[in-house]
Nucleic acid binder design. Structure first.
Lengths: 185, 185
DNA sequence: TGGTCCATGTAAAACGTTACATGATTCC
DNA sequence: GGAATCATGTAACGTTTTACATGGACCA
């Protein structure tokens, strides 16, 4: 059910094909939900069958035709109902932390390397998010309510990446003393 | 495969029954992985069938007998190999952020209420984590390598909850102006 | 001519959730 | 007497992942 909701809030922004949605899930929607194109196409078929979305085929000359999906009134009603239903905190599943929990099994350099790699990736994401913030949300006071809500999801991403970076630094300096006399980087 | 690894690092700590594991997944392991008892029992049967763990039946008088599972050499080898394989950043799936993205559909008070609820829950978790930190890790300098790795997973949880709290505050004060003349709490 | 983008799908396997099922003990 | 804890499972269903499959347009 959760993927359905993520698709619906995306369609609220603009009618999209499955392909468009897949790209949005790789971009801005990806801050808080990920899904592959296979999942998306299947879910779209299911949502259309139950009248939550409708499609319109758009013929194209130089490119394959596409089906543009849009949310129906029934879909909006369903989404609104869900917005009124409280959610639990979302569960965390993190491979890196599982690894750390058993980290004493391997030489310290193994996880130090992985921590450096993660730090780098979080750093990259943070820079991307901050670029989006500057480009699209330069003046928070001037935002429409809709833009304001979406801005907050971006702010969450920024907060999240900053937290990870801070923790990576802490973990690296905590574990570095365990790695005796190694030249790495 | 990921649940398997979470079970294995837990068994590394001490041989456990399915029931024990389920409780650990509700506790310390729950910082970074969640699983229901049904999942755990199924996975244990599978892991035993492939020689990654072994079980020994422990007869008990006043309580039901239990099967204590322990990791085998093959299991340790498999886990070690996985520790050497780099992981991607873990995907985020967060209902609350999906809701915010479509938040303009409902009156501001709806999401303000939900944000307050989430703030409260993150606050509760943070206090729990900090209690564990004080009780079990009072002197970081004195920790064994094994304890040090596990301490870092707790520190990640603390960082995570602090980040969420900070963001909840920001989101609440950003959205509060949208809710005009309402008496809520 | 080899790679990426556009565009949509099928199929199988793995993983996760919900509901059902049992039964003694211990605590309030 | 009722709820919680200990202890283990089955079954059905739903979701996610991984692999396979196709084919034209455009760019270097």
């Amino acid at each position: 059910m959760a993927l359905a909701h993520a698709i619906l809030v995306t369609l609220l922004d603009s009618p999209s094909s499955g392909y468009d949605l897949a790209r949005q899930f790789d971009g801005a929607v990806g801050f808080f939900w990920q899904a592959s194109h296979q999942q998306i196409y299947r879910e779209l078929a299911k949502l259309e069958a139950s009248g939550i979305i409708t499609s319109e085929t758009v013929l194209q000359e130089t490119r394959p035709n596409k089906k543009l999906y849009a949310i129906t009134d029934r879909g909006t009603a369903m989404l609104t109902e869900w917005l009124h239903t409280p959610s639990d905190l979302s569960p965390i599943k993190d491979d890196l932390l599982v690894k750390l929990f058993g980290g004493h099994l391997v030489e310290p350099t193994v996880l130090l390397q992985e921590l450096r790699q993660h730090r780098k990736q979080h750093q990259t994401r943070l820079v991307e998010y901050q670029a989006i913030e500057e480009r699209f949300f330069p003046d928070v006071e001037a935002l429409s309510p809709k833009a304001l809500y979406q801005y907050l999801t971006l702010r969450n991403g920024i907060q999240y990446e900053q937290g990870w970076l801070k923790w990576c630094e802490e973990a690296l300096s905590t574990l570095q003393p365990l790695a005796t006399s190694n030249a790495e980087e």
